[in-house]
Simulated scan of single mutants.
Amino acid sequence: MRAAFLVLLLCLTPLSQAAIYRWVDESGKVHFSDKQPENNAPTEEISSELRPLNSDSSATETEKLKAVFQEETPEEKAFNTRQQIEQEKQQLLKQQDCQKARNRLSIMRGRVAFEDAEGKEIILSEEARQQQAKRLEQQVQIDCR
């Protein structure tokens, strides 16, 4: 609790060259302030123990990070772009396969009439139609994940 109060007090107190004082009142409560207490209670100056809260080290930290993590080279950018294009192509092909499988399944669920190469009607039993529909459902599950 005391530490949280100290942190809160330090965040709210503008940072300057002012001293920070700590003292304990008659009831044993610890106080922090940039001014000494009016009742001349014994105080302890703690400014030297605190580190600056608003110091800007972002430039130095950024330089350190740049040294460790170099930016992408043109070759790496080109490679990553090719990889992304390839992934998009793969995704498009998968979507097309999925749509084809769904269309075939839709057809197999209804009345079906097949023709051979000579244009003659092939009669398909209900059992054979259901087997083909089941295979197409499995294909849809594979292509459409």
Rank of each mutant, 00 (worst) to 15 (best):
S57I: 13
R135W: 05
A59T: 12
Q91N: 07
Q96I: 11
P37R: 00
G110K: 12
I20H: 01
T73Y: 00
A128L: 10
L124H: 01
D34S: 14
S33P: 15
S58F: 05
E72T: 08
E126Y: 05
Q96V: 09
T81Q: 13
S27T: 12
F5I: 10
E49P: 00
Q130E: 06
A4V: 12
S33C: 05
P52H: 02
K89R: 12
E38F: 01
P14D: 06
E63S: 09
G28C: 04
E63L: 06
S48L: 02
T62K: 11
S47T: 08
Q95M: 03
E88Y: 06
Q132R: 11
R104Y: 12
P42N: 06
S16N: 11
E127F: 07
Q130H: 08
K29Y: 10
A18H: 11
S55M: 14
T62Q: 11
K100I: 11
R111H: 15
L10D: 09
S47C: 03
A133C: 02
A128Q: 11
Q84P: 03
Q99V: 05
K134E: 03
F5M: 04
G28A: 03
L53G: 07
E118M: 08
S57T: 13
Q70C: 06
A59S: 14
R109I: 12
A67R: 15
R104I: 07
R2M: 07
G119L: 08
L9F: 13
S106K: 12
K134Y: 02
R135Q: 09
R102I: 13
Q139A: 06
P74T: 01
D34W: 10
K64H: 10
I123N: 12
A128W: 09
V7Y: 09
P52K: 02
L8W: 14
P37V: 00
F5Q: 11
G119Y: 04
L6T: 01
Q132V: 15
I46F: 05
P14Y: 05
Q91F: 07
S33E: 00
M108G: 02
K94H: 03
S125Q: 02
K89Q: 09
S48R: 11
L15N: 13
Q84F: 07
E121I: 06
Q141P: 13
L9W: 14
S125E: 03
T81V: 14
E126I: 06
Q70S: 08
C144Y: 00
E71H: 01
C98S: 02
R129E: 09
E38D: 15
S16W: 10
P74F: 00
D116T: 10
D25G: 04
K66A: 04
I107R: 13
Q87V: 03
Q139R: 08
N54H: 12
I46H: 02
V140K: 00
G110S: 13
F69L: 03
